[in-house]
Design a protein around this nucleic acid. Structure first.
Lengths: 300, 300
DNA sequence: TATTAGGCCTAGGAAAACTATGGCATCATA
DNA sequence: TATGATGCCATAGTTTTCCTAGGCCTAATA
């Protein structure tokens, strides 16, 4: 029954954002990563918010946290509110610089698929700036400042996003090596190059095409697909190639596909457009170029 | 056409809030007041946001600011987003402490109308805490941490909020002074007490009831109605009384209304409930007490 | 029994936010 | 034409907030 003089303040906005991220991503560490801070910072924000509210939002367990009923009861509102806010920010950014389009893509996609298409974009669309940011995981387009994301995505039950092209895998190497590679059993004689993030590729491909064939699934491993590709061009071995990423070198004749049997994966190169960007003229043109440019030449 | 390494960050949340407030309230100074900071702080926030976006949001004029087309184009999104966020915070606060109800009211209302009703609330509703914050202007219940606001509001075209009772004005004084006050012309012999924020009251009342009567519209002025009322009880003069605020002293017999002619104003004491609080049990009971307590004894 | 993953705490330092002050331009008033 | 009031800007200095670092704890895993 107090009659307090100063207008009481709400909680700090940053604490709310930390709470929302921690709840959505299921842990302080994940939230910390998204917000580019240390987990300790998240813990402090959330503690201050809990102090403000007067009760706990998370149950701390030895490994990970769990929302309390109170936390679970309010998180949806916060997520929606921050989505709206993120959308408003996206809208502001895009309206302020409608000729500046920001694209987020997997490093390999940025370098091997997107980069070769930039000259055409520049040619087609005058007076435009395109920024490309390479990252391992797709950004949340409701929150992060990108207009377009291009990533490989496993096929969901219900299609969403814009499919650019289906992913499929098959071995590739230089013409030089291909001469000594006449049937699958010859693979045993070469280093089999692979990418860390797609370490099952060789297994999938051999199982699908030559289930009886035993193949040593060892060889150089690269964390950057473009490095793996470069090594392959240096005849360092046979790479398990992803069609959208190797097509250009095949077309140029710098690499060949020595063995038949391309394996289509339940995964595609997908584009997603931030909602406020859907009406942007520059982006529409970019999409037209990117989608038009993709006339797959089936391999195998 | 850059390929930048670190994930670019969005703008600081506090800058967004400053922008939203400045746009909504039409000026940096007003925003500063709402956010309890100096205008300079707002100016800096907005400048940083403009720097982030790369273009101006406000046109600075010698007296006041005006939104640029860009600013005008995005402000609605921001306002909606912050409304949502405010609602989420309200919801959190209320769920965290469902037995703690916060009421905002005009100082005079808090002291003269609300305060006498608190004992009944305490009696009716066990286990509850009521905080009352007195303020001159009604809080934005979507943003500020109150569950209920009680203020005088002029009648709008379309009714909104919950009407507690109509405001009407008429002179009041002690029985002692009333003896010497038998007709309106006697008013000239007494100091006419008034409140700063309702400085037209005496004029309205005399014009409505005794248009031919000339009255000296001068006398002690108080910025707190409860002070004016206290002085009236000390027989310092005649107060132009607001029915909801003086009724109790009339009922107690400590003051009387010496002259006929209560003037109903196009204004009522109105309650407003924050949206997340509408479902709160404690608040429902409080509203029942407050509305039930008001059985006006018409004066004349 | 190590190891790891995830979170907590505290101290100290970095960054952000805010205040204070002086200045300028416009408008209304005297 | 002074004069004051309003409203914003710029800068410097201060306060507050935020963040990191590093040590500690617990439970699950190998």
């Amino acid at each position: 029954m107090t009659v307090s003089p100063p207008r009481p303040k709400g909680p700090p906005l940053n604490a709310l954002r930390a709470f929302e991220a921690a709840a959505r991503l299921n842990g302080f560490s994940n939230a910390a990563e998204e917000l580019c801070v240390t987990p300790g910072a998240i813990a402090q924000h959330i503690k201050s918010l809990e102090a403000w509210a007067g009760s706990d939002l998370f149950v701390r367990q030895s490994q990970g946290v769990r929302l309390t009923p109170l936390g679970a009861g309010v998180i949806e509102d916060f997520s929606n509110a921050f989505d709206k806010l993120g959308e408003a920010v996206q809208n502001l950014r895009l309206r302020a610089a409608p000729k500046h389009i920001r694209i987020a893509a997997l490093p390999s996609v940025a370098q091997l698929w997107l980069s070769p298409r930039l000259p055409e974009i520049r040619r087609e669309i005058a007076d435009i700036t395109v920024s490309i940011t390479a990252m391992e995981t797709a950004p949340n387009l409701l929150r992060e400042p990108y207009d377009l994301s291009i990533f490989f995505e496993d096929h969901p039950l219900l299609p969403e996003g814009i499919e650019i092209c289906r992913d499929s895998i098959f071995p590739v190497c230089t013409a030089e090596l291909a001469k000594e590679l006449n049937n699958p059993s010859d693979l045993i004689n070469f280093p089999l190059i692979q990418d860390t993030s797609w370490s099952e590729d060789w297994k999938y491909w051999t199982e699908a095409n030559y289930p009886d064939q035993k193949i040593k699934l060892e060889g150089p491993v690269f964390s950057l697909y473009s490095l793996a590709l470069e090594e392959t061009r240096n005849s360092a071995g046979i790479l398990i190639g992803h069609e959208p990423l190797v097509r250009r070198l095949l077309d140029l004749g710098e690499l060949v596909a020595p063995l038949p049997g391309a394996l289509p994966l339940k995964r595609s190169l997908m584009a997603r457009i931030a909602k406020p960007a859907t009406k942007n003229q520059a982006l529409k043109k970019i999409m037209a170029v990117l989608l038009g440019s993709d006339k797959p030449k089936p391999q195998a």
